[in-house]
Design a protein around this nucleic acid. Sequence first.
DNA 1: AAGTGTACAA
Length: 721
Amino acid sequence: MPRRPPNPNDHLLRPSSSSIIRLVKSVANLDEPPNPPYLLHLFRQIPTPTTFLWNIVIRALFRGSSPLDSLRLYDQMRKRSVSPDAHTFKYSFKACGAGSLIKEGKSIHSDCVRRFAETDALIANSLMQMYVEFGEIGDARRVFDSIVTKDVVSWTTILNGCLKSGAVDEAVKVFDAMPERNVVSWTIMVSGFAKIGLSGEAIGFFKRMVEEGVKPDEVSIVSVLSACARSKDLETGEWVHRLCGNKGELTAVALVDMYAKCGNMESARRVFESADRRVTPAWNALIDGYCKSGDLESAQSLFDRMDHQRRDVVTFNSMITGYIHGGRFKEALRFFKEVQRLGLRPDNFTIVGFLTACTSLGALDQGRALHAYIVTSPIKNDVYIETALLDMYAKCGHIDHATAVFARMQCKDRQAFTAMISGLAVHGEGESALTHFDSMIEQGIRPNGVAYIAVLSACSHSNLVEEGRKRFKEMKSIHHIEPEIEHYGCMVDLLGRGGRLKEAEDLIQTMPIEPNSVIWASLLNACRVYNDVELAEKAAKKLIELEPDEDGAYVLMRNVYTRARRRAEAANVRRLMEAKGVRKMKGWSSIVVDGAVHEFVSGEASHPEMERIRAKMEEVEGRLRSEGYVAEGAGEVWMDVTEEEKEGVVCAHSERLAVAFGLVRLGSDATIRVMKSLRICGDCHSAIKMVSRIYAREVVVRDRSRFHRFRDGVCSCNDFW
DNA sequence: AAGTGTACAA
């Protein structure tokens, strides 16, 4: 029968019953899913449909993604006492599976056993598949065992169910016991193992399949290429490429993605350029590859070359994360505006990207606005969004909001716990961080190296030396995680700041990894705090070897000599710096007022409201002095300036300018929130403490390593940072 | 009965 296109006005012609039946059959059998209301409208005009007609409409409806309509039809069929046959059940089970209609599925199952034995593979296979989609592997297994003559689909379905439910050993048993395996069975093994991170095994199954003479199809090729991409197995990827050529647009996409993820952008580009159809996923895979390799220019030029109509939300998401990883947050935020302007629907990936940009910029207000938007939008919170949200609040200074987000999370994974722990760490809440870590382990979540970085840095920020030592030992002895350079860095910091300089030095000497600049800088900083000139000289020498152009070692060394009253040597360091052309890095601070970011650089007077700021600073200085404040500049030199300049410039440190600006422009009860690019200096720290008391203002400073919350003359760091 | 591009913690 020739298929005719559905015409919405056909029903107006009041056709005969037989032509309606022909129309329903043709609409229901279309490859493209029909419009459900239209199909139902036609169907209802048939006075007494046969079981066959009910069946094809039930099938058409769930294919058109209306599984609930399928089941309504099944119910009507029963009410009108039409006998269901095997196909009725097959399609109804599929509809239940597709729509996660668990209750309905079980009830139809019991209807079914009253009429048919489960031993019929036609029914049993779809029933099994339904239980697999419900995640009820036990029920699926029971159905499987009851089938008398299992065909290859029965075996393959239960195999898929085992892997989906995480029963890997069971899956292997089923696979070995199968009397016959086709390309689908093999592909299930390939993708199932790849999904749980065992890409090597996944690739092994593919190779075995080829050896046993089963011809790979496009789905299996795509699966194995994805496994190669995941495990960065370029060699196998190239072998698959030779095996399959680049036939088929899905293969081409998978090849581009595989080469890009393996870091071979030349091959990725070659496949892309020679593909007959450059579909959006292929562009996206290539763009993302350039972003991941840090080549934002190539990514941007591809993006520009792309047909505007072709760009989808994934394209934008890739660009956004690319710019974020490149540290270009403001440009990343511009893509969001573009997504909205084009009327594309931001998805969870977009939201996470936006939040990450806010976190890095310290843009609390924008992050908060997005949080409000999520609540009212159709976007469903997931663990990524929630983790990004809590991280945003923590890093923007609101540890209480972060804690609240965390408490409400339905499923807390390792990343969520780690974000919470490191949030508590930078706020100096070490004990709470350790409690969270312990409760994570109690819940059966195994820590990894990153979680341990968070824990050890929490100990180090809160001066929990013994706890830190204990955790560091347990890391290897209990959790079998080999410490990496970052963990040694935390330990050197912890021991050094805790005054155990000798132990810190011993650790550096005995650690199995070559110490890096972070480690030597930590030790040097500890030497400055505890006035150990000799060890400081050793550390500085190493640091300068590793980073000859950086100013850190010189600045710290000058402070060490000055504090030890060895002025000649301090001056010598200064001369050395000048001779080598090492320049001091200028720090900056920023503060948000009325949604606008204001940036301040030490000693610079470029801000348009500088007059008011200067007046405020003079007033503040006056009040500090009358309260007995003396600039610590006499003992410690923090800036690269001469003695005469010293006090004046210390007073003009960027964080002081930002705080003064906050006093001028913010309401008298608003918290002053400042972000600083470097660590806060000791002098500013004491001054801001007093400001918080004299002006009865809460001041929060986020510096390079942690938060300082100043309230009533006290800082949350307890002067330890 | 199987597959495909983008995300969070340091």
